[in-house]
């Protein structure tokens, strides 16, 4: 069986390389994509379009495969239902994304190049990971 950890490392590295080549490590460029009323930069749309093509093929293949290469079965998230947590979480994420021009992938990838610039974002994001489940638990009671 192919080594699962090795596939993860390779996938992560390809992902990071793609982010670097596409210009998505630059918060100014990413913020520019969201600045539709100002100096709009469409680059992110090309990146998303480029990424969706191979992934659409991968989903086509996935539906025809009994299992992935390095596991007994696929472990896929639900595609339904739409919950208040999903929508409010996405809205909160979007506000942060617009404010800083960074989402989790580029923030972690740029750690290798400019750690002194990006560390406050990464530390705060990890703090957010800690806080989120507590907020969610409070929302349920």
């Amino acid at each position: 069986m192919v080594n699962r950890t090795l596939i993860g490392l390779l996938s992560g590295a390809l992902f990071g390389a793609g982010l670097a080549i596409s210009g998505m490590l630059d918060p100014v460029r990413v913020r520019g994509f969201l600045d539709v009323l100002g100096r709009w930069d469409p680059t992110l749309a090309f990146v998303m379009g480029g990424a969706l093509l191979p992934m659409a093929g991968a989903w086509w293949l996935q539906r025809r495969l009994p299992a992935p290469l390095a596991d007994q079965r696929f472990h896929l998230p639900h595609t339904n239902p739409i919950t208040p947590s999903l929508v409010s979480g996405a809205a909160i994420f979007g506000i942060g994304w617009g404010l800083g021009g960074l989402c989790p992938g580029p923030a972690l990838a740029v750690l290798a190049l400019q750690p002194l610039d990006v560390w406050p974002f990464v530390v705060a994001m990890l703090a957010g990971f800690v806080v989120a489940p507590r907020l969610q638990a409070r929302g349920r009671t």
Partner: peptide, 26 residues
Amino acid sequence: PLVWQGLMGGVLIGLAAALMLLGTGR
């Protein structure tokens, strides 16, 4: 705007996600 670099980098990102899905099921 980076049209070609954006597309090429995007394809790499898509291939990375495809490798994760078809390789590990995640």
